[in-house]
């Protein structure tokens, strides 16, 4: 229900915004392309108009219908800066890189972050707290793209132990060979660390706060009264219960991770859709920007759905329809 609503909202936003622009965005693009030396056949121009159902002469609901029909055919329009490549082609090419970065970053930040938070809650003395809490808050306040900047300037430009840009070295051939895989990992480490370190700060804080709340619950007190060790209480009793809200938090944080990824990919010139959207923004490639927004929305909805499934699997009270 929520997921459908969000998707419809994203469609409406994508449909409405170009129509709010002064002038005729399609005409502007066509004019610019011709000025740039492209030869556009009348069919091509007609095709560009047909995309997004953009036609000021038709009633708005007909335009919306045309737009949906185009989308159902997987047609997101033609890129302006990468003309004549289609938006869906560009996104399909770049999306795997982003999914690769984001999923690893989330995994290496959420899993350790949750465990650290869990055990930090068991350790509650003033001295530990007075260093630990500010430190975590500071880490989660760092802009992740700036962290990437520092990594690049130190590890790549100065020490030269990591590459400055890209997803793999141009000396390797993409495919299932070891050299390629190693090169990909080599290129991904700094971007992943930039994303993961900052995100982990937030996950630790959240898990710790949830744990502190759960540890005051009656069932934990009962476990304590039964003489169970603190370690066991933290691991089995409180931990399992605090995990559920943390999964919700994980789903909610996906939006921020994808958003931060735009900036991190831009810093590392990483060929995912984050960097693609930065390129689209600087080149005023409207179709590309609209298409990317839709893809980001779908990615987040999928992440939410997966979190829901994980939640239902862990929580016996929840059943999925």
């Amino acid at each position: 229900m929520l997921l459908t609503g969000t998707f419809v909202a994203a469609l409406l936003i994508d449909f409405t915004l170009p129509r709010l622009m002064p002038g005729n965005p399609v005409q502007t693009e066509v004019t610019n392309l011709i000025a740039a030396g492209f030869t556009l056949s009348p069919e091509a121009i007609k095709g560009m108009y047909a995309l997004y159902g953009y036609n000021p002469n038709l009633p708005i609901y007909v335009q919306f219908y045309d737009y949906i029909v185009q989308l159902l055919h997987g047609n997101l329009g033609v890129s302006y800066i990468f003309f004549p490549q289609s938006v869906s082609y560009l996104i399909a090419q770049r999306l795997p890189w982003t999914i690769f970065l984001v999923s690893i970053a989330v995994a290496v930040s959420w899993i350790p972050g949750t465990f650290i938070g869990m055990f930090a809650a068991g350790k509650r003395n003033a001295k530990f707290d007075s260093i630990f809490t500010p430190l975590l808050n500071f880490i989660s306040s760092i802009p992740n793209f700036w962290l990437g900047f520092l990594f690049l300037i130190f590890f790549a430009a100065d020490l030269k132990i990591f590459p400055l840009f890209g997803a793999y070295s141009n000396t390797v051939t993409p495919g299932a060979n070891l050299a390629f895989i190693l090169s990909v990992l080599h290129h991904a480490i700094l971007p992943i660390l930039s994303l993961a370190i900052v995100a982990m700060g937030g996950y630790v804080i959240h898990m710790r706060n949830t744990m502190v709340g759960v540890m005051g619950d009656d069932f934990v007190l009962v476990a304590r009264a039964k003489g169970l060790s603190n370690r066991r209480i933290v691991r089995t009793y409180a931990g399992a219960n605090a995990l559920l809200p943390n999964i919700t938090m994980l789903a909610i944080s996906m939006g921020a991770v994808f958003g931060g990824n735009i900036l991190v990919e831009t810093i590392f010139t990483y060929p995912g859709i984050g960097y693609l959207s930065a390129v689209a923004v600087s080149g005023e490639d409207y179709s590309l920007i609209l298409g990317i927004f839709l893809i980001f929305t779908i990615a987040i909805l999928v992440a939410n759905l997966m979190a829901d499934l994980l939640y239902a699997w862990l929580d016996p009270r929840v059943s999925l329809i």
Binding site: I13, I252, G255, F258, G259, T297, I300
Partner: peptide
């Protein structure tokens, strides 16, 4: 709350970028 949930689910930074690019 339906509207709130939708806004919470939409990717914030991409939406901000979209609005800034398209608003006149």
């Amino acid at each position: 709350m339906r509207i709130v949930d939708i806004f919470l689910t939409l990717p914030t930074l991409p939406l901000i970028i979209l609005l800034i690019v398209f608003l006149p």
